[in-house]
């Protein structure tokens, strides 16, 4: 009987999930009109079976009025949107991955005939659900108990390139303003051409002596114009005049080099005063 309190305590300890989720590779999918296929590898590295469901949708990352990124998705994009989601077939769409098992998923794209040159976009959605969460049993018939199972959805970019594709960068509205303990830099970055702009945005702050005082860098994927924010801690910037230089350059460390399209660097600068 002495064990009863301990057993009761165990009963209501939060249940550890046998970790649920899958490993997915790659994290960006590029397809073109020559191959029209791609593969994605799913691995269940855990001790619990995982149910995986794959689908496609249309969307990308946008920035809100404060410059923060957020996802934007729609199942009914504008008819002029370069939406490749309906053309993608997934084999298999559902899989049950036993512990330590893997599954190669094949993607086949079937675009309509006469498709104009350009890049078309979709998002691969991988939904992973683990086994049923055990819910603590009520201690007595008057108890309210809660079970909150968790699932994970991973969304990866899928870019289909048809014929000749090109991209370019434009930057304007460069600004800087103090917000609390930070200098917040913003710039509008747009793409030109018929493909997404996969780039890196970099900024530097130099003082009047030409000494580099701060710098920042961010990989950006531009599908629609974005106006991201970059924060520089003010404690790294003594009061005084500075020159802010910003550029959008080709090159991404997180994407395969062969998938990157060349473009001319976009630059802008402004003089500012740190109060």
């Amino acid at each position: 009987m002495k064990r009863a309190p301990a057993l009761l305590l165990l009963l209501f300890l939060p249940r550890l999930l046998a970790a649920q989720g899958v490993l997915i590779a790659p994290t960006s999918i590029f397809m073109d009109s020559r191959t029209r296929t791609a593969t994605v590898l799913l691995v269940n590295p855990n001790d619990q079976a995982v149910e995986v469901t794959l689908s496609t949708t249309y969307g990308y990352a946008v920035t809100d009025s404060t410059g923060r990124f957020q996802p934007w998705f729609t199942d009914t994009p504008d008819s002029t949107a370069p939406n490749a989601a309906p053309w993608v077939r997934i084999f298999p769409r559902r899989a049950s991955l036993e512990p330590r098992a893997q599954q190669v998923v094949r993607l086949l794209i079937s675009p309509p005939a006469g498709l104009a040159d350009g890049e078309y976009w979709a998002r691969l959605v991988v939904l992973a659900k683990g086994g049923q969460l055990q819910v603590s049993a009520p201690a007595d018939s008057n108890t309210v108990s809660i079970g909150l199972p968790m699932q994970v959805r991973t969304i990866l970019p899928l870019l289909y390139r048809n014929g000749k594709v090109q991209t370019g960068a434009e930057m304007d509205r460069l600004s800087a303003a103090t917000e609390g303990d930070s200098l917040v830099v913003r710039a509008r970055i747009s793409r030109i051409g018929n493909a997404a702009l996969l780039a890196t945005a970099r900024g530097t702050l130099t003082d009047t002596a030409g000494v580099l005082r701060a710098h920042f860098s961010l990989p950006v994927s531009v599908y629609a114009p974005i106006e991201p924010r970059f924060s520089v801690p003010l404690d790294s910037l003594p009061r005084g005049p500075y020159v802010l230089r910003m550029e959008v350059t080709p090159g991404r460390t997180d994407l395969p080099v062969e998938a990157l399209l060349p473009f001319r660097v976009a630059r802008d600068s402004l003089a500012l005063q740190v109060p």
Binding site: L23, T27, I146, M150
Partner: peptide, 17 residues
């Protein structure tokens, strides 16, 4: 290429209410 793995480790638990 790159890979990602996201795991649910622990469920949000309130215990008996």
């Amino acid at each position: 290429g790159r890979k990602i793995r996201v795991d649910g480790i622990r469920a949000l638990a309130f215990g008996p209410l």
